[in-house]
Design a protein around this nucleic acid. Sequence first.
DNA 1: CATGAATGAGGGTTCATTCAT
DNA 2: CATGAATGAACCCTCATTCAT
Lengths: 235, 235, 235, 235
Amino acid sequence: MSSQSQLASEKVLADHRSRVGAERRTRMRACLVECALLVFAEHGVDAIIIDKVIKTAGVSRGTFYNYFRTDGDLFVAVATEVSDEILRVVNPVVVQEPDPAARVSLGIRYVFQLVKSYPLLAEFLDHGGQSALRYGKLVNEVVPRDLSKGMAAGRFTVRSLRLGLDLLLGPVLLGFHTILTEAVDDDYAEALAASILMALGVPETEARRYCSLPLQTLRMPVDSLFYRAESRKPS
Amino acid sequence: MSSQSQLASEKVLADHRSRVGAERRTRMRACLVECALLVFAEHGVDAIIIDKVIKTAGVSRGTFYNYFRTDGDLFVAVATEVSDEILRVVNPVVVQEPDPAARVSLGIRYVFQLVKSYPLLAEFLDHGGQSALRYGKLVNEVVPRDLSKGMAAGRFTVRSLRLGLDLLLGPVLLGFHTILTEAVDDDYAEALAASILMALGVPETEARRYCSLPLQTLRMPVDSLFYRAESRKPS
Amino acid sequence: MSSQSQLASEKVLADHRSRVGAERRTRMRACLVECALLVFAEHGVDAIIIDKVIKTAGVSRGTFYNYFRTDGDLFVAVATEVSDEILRVVNPVVVQEPDPAARVSLGIRYVFQLVKSYPLLAEFLDHGGQSALRYGKLVNEVVPRDLSKGMAAGRFTVRSLRLGLDLLLGPVLLGFHTILTEAVDDDYAEALAASILMALGVPETEARRYCSLPLQTLRMPVDSLFYRAESRKPS
Amino acid sequence: MSSQSQLASEKVLADHRSRVGAERRTRMRACLVECALLVFAEHGVDAIIIDKVIKTAGVSRGTFYNYFRTDGDLFVAVATEVSDEILRVVNPVVVQEPDPAARVSLGIRYVFQLVKSYPLLAEFLDHGGQSALRYGKLVNEVVPRDLSKGMAAGRFTVRSLRLGLDLLLGPVLLGFHTILTEAVDDDYAEALAASILMALGVPETEARRYCSLPLQTLRMPVDSLFYRAESRKPS
DNA sequence: CATGAATGAGGGTTCATTCAT
DNA sequence: CATGAATGAACCCTCATTCAT
């Protein structure tokens, strides 16, 4: 082999290595997030408990700290991904609706549908409380944008965005806990969504109409965080 | 001294002693609750941290365990007293109002008034989240009762009590965080209360009317938990 | 009343008082010992746990320390009284036997009879281990005397008193544990006693003969520690 | 370095690392056991007291819990190793003797020889009482087996294994205490062993003959627990 | 990069004993 | 004498984080 082609092949090799490395990094990180979700869903708010995460993932302590600086970072990562996964499924069907009021209604109802269908999601949101939804675009971008649009369009009479968010997220968060811990009617989520629209200023009849529109059945993609995590569960 | 009068005096002594003892016990317990409130307001949900409480109170570890079996017990005690203190001040003015919708509105607005006036209360409620209000009669008796009455009277169109509670408490809890951490208009609480009424089914104009009624300025009694705790703050 | 007779009557009164006082002291002390036995029988070696004793007795901490300087003192008191109670019942029937070998045999067998009949005694001895029998005359006077006599009389070929004690007490202590925790034949105690005699140098046939002599059924007097304690048990 | 040889060297490295790691782990564990033995020998039954152990070992609390789940686990580990060390030295010389009576006799006498030579062992057994010998094969396998054989061979007339164990272990345990705390003749152990044989049913002359056979002088190997622990003593 | 032993601050709880009233 | 609140030393256990290999 000539010296030149040797150099070239080294470059290729290096490229290949770094690409493989990057992939491995990504996979490892994903694995840790999945395991954290699992642990977090099972144990409480104050859990995460790195020990359990790394045991579930089958990696060493040191490895963990190669991917996350602190346990808080891990929590943020999980919460963000959870939020993004929800968005990934819910957003496509919601954005087709031009009316902000309809969007809000559908968004709430679809999220509740998911929570009912995916136990892991339910447990995470219930245990995590407020902070479980604080990260990611869902709460920080999408919902505020829809609220703003609705306010601009005069569909919502609520005066400030902040107030609108509190009126929307407050009941939703408590609602997660409610449907997980108490026996409620099947139409709980529907009624909750309607009431939230009313709080925002939508007339009752209209609010109830929006909220009785039929829903599709959404499914998380099989490569989603929830499936991946589920498949790691103690067989 | 005759044997008889001696016996008598012994009885008196015993009485006096037990009374003084009971008083001291009560004071000590109150002291611990105050310090716990302080600690809890400053540090987070998962705080309480017996160590800090006893250091603040200037008593020994053992003393703490003479009054509370576990740190959880202490938290419940604090949360309950906080709830009761709020009730003690707010209830008298609210109950004069026969209309459940008015009551709910006033209740919310007065609680926000207190939260704005008493920083300690604000911090406690903010840090404590849901659990900060889970104990005591306020959330477990008074609010449910008013909601039920309103539903029975047809003032609220909400279908279930549980839903009503979620619609009311959810925004209120987030609202506490909002007024503590963001600059909001003075009428935030007023608007929040109105929106909650709307969520419950009260027509907007009516809701806004209720919520613009003038409020008295409530003051915690000077012997209240909050004053006592405040006076213990690091000088 | 003349000054003189007044003095006299004061003396009488004082006498009376001090007598009553002494009685009360004795009763209180007895009460504490009973409760300690109860607590000790139920919980382990390292129990006693003054807290439980005073709660059982229904007296205050301070009172306890008026009767015993430390918890160790209390234990010694209990152990001593237990030993004395055993002696009080067993000794009268044993001393009628002039032969030291017979005495030792009967002593062991009667003690086992008591242990089987009085659960409290059994539990105390089992939990207390060695120290439960270290105090009182039984082990410190009576048994050594019988052993010495037997050695002097040539009935026992064992060379030293200490050795004889170890040979006797060792198996007896383990035997208590055995009969309390394992299913053993009814003749366990009998066989144990015979073997101990053999260890001391009594020929096997003779040893077995002694140990198959019929026993009376001993009963603790109704005013005994065990009855008194039993009657304090959580009804 | 070629990729291949790199992989190879990684493997070697990993191997080396895991071997070194395992060795270190073993040493640390041994260190903790040694220190526990020290602490336990000095203080009482209820000692162990993690605090003192880790201070003696010069390691952190956390380290302790990396090796033992609770303090009870540590005690079991110490007791087991002590038992095994005794067995390691005594068994080889005892098993050469086919006669169960001779084995029992030699076993007892050699153990006492060790107890006299190794103060740490003596203190451990004295303080630990029954539980000090409850673990490990010595009491749970070897001694029962020899007793059973002797019973089967008609050398022992004792009726049950349990009884035999009580007759053997009882005096031995008290004997440890005796030789540590009292001035006894040099032949105490010899006489004790003979008496135990007699208790088991061996005729006196025979028993004494066995027990006067000359003994070798056993030595713990220098890498034994006792040497290692001794060398850690407060210089 | 991976590993996992070691760390140690952080928290929790118990219980014998003292002492002012 | 009785009382019982207060004390504080003595223990126990967890878990996030570091670092040598």
